[in-house]
């Protein structure tokens, strides 16, 4: 089978722009400024070592290829360093576009397990990196600080507030649903 048989032309005469509208609404309002120069990918430290190509993802988004964009594992190799954003001649703000696409991906169930665990930690402890073990309290004491800092580690009511926020925004379900899927 040749590759020509596997890959069909993309009908750009009638692109489905619902995905683009979703991205614009979710934090990437300038996505349609892109003229595909590739400055983003040329500047990208993740792109130089992985298959992550900002230009490709934006092109696919503009063509309405939502599923390809949101299911791509490479989507999660952007470190959000904003080098592409600072260099983009069209003010596309590619980093924000990638984050917006990630938002859509998560809303549709594409969330990596380690990310889900990090999110759960914030809901459970108020911190993505919690104080957690006695050894960290000992470390604080060793450098002359109180064993428990005056953040959510000391004030459980702060964690309750985070839980209420997550319930209100539906974020708790977003994370929990994924958990059920994994089981």
């Amino acid at each position: 089978m040749t590759s020509a048989e596997e890959k069909t032309a993309i009908e750009i005469d009638t692109p489905d722009d619902s995905f683009v509208q979703m991205i614009k609404k979710t934090g990437g309002p300038n996505v349609q400024n892109c003229y595909q120069c590739g400055t983003c990918s040329g500047s990208c430290p993740a792109g130089s070592r992985t298959n992550y190509l900002v230009r490709l993802i934006i092109r696919k988004a503009l063509l309405g290829l939502k599923e390809q964009c949101i299911s791509s594992p490479e989507l999660w190799y952007c470190t959000t360093c904003y080098t592409c954003t600072d260099r983009c001649p069209q003010d596309v703000k590619p980093t924000d576009v990638i984050k917006a696409i990630r938002n859509v991906a998560v809303a549709e169930g594409y969330m990596l397990v380690p990310h889900q665990k990090t999110a759960l930690k914030v809901l459970e402890a108020g911190h993505a990196v919690p104080l957690e073990k006695e050894m960290w309290e000992n470390l604080r004491e060793k450098v002359g600080l109180e064993r428990v800092p005056p953040n959510a580690s000391r004030y459980p009511e702060a964690i309750e507030e985070i839980k209420k926020i997550a319930k209100k925004t539906g974020f708790d379900k977003l994370v929990a649903e994924k958990e059920t899927q994994e089981e």
């Binding site: 999660w76 959000t80 938002n103 998560v106 969330m111 990310h115 990090t118 999110a119 914030v122």
Partner: peptide, 8 residues
């Protein structure tokens, strides 16, 4: 990077 990527 984590939360901003999940739900703005």
């Amino acid at each position: 990077g984590v939360f901003g990527s999940f739900d703005r």
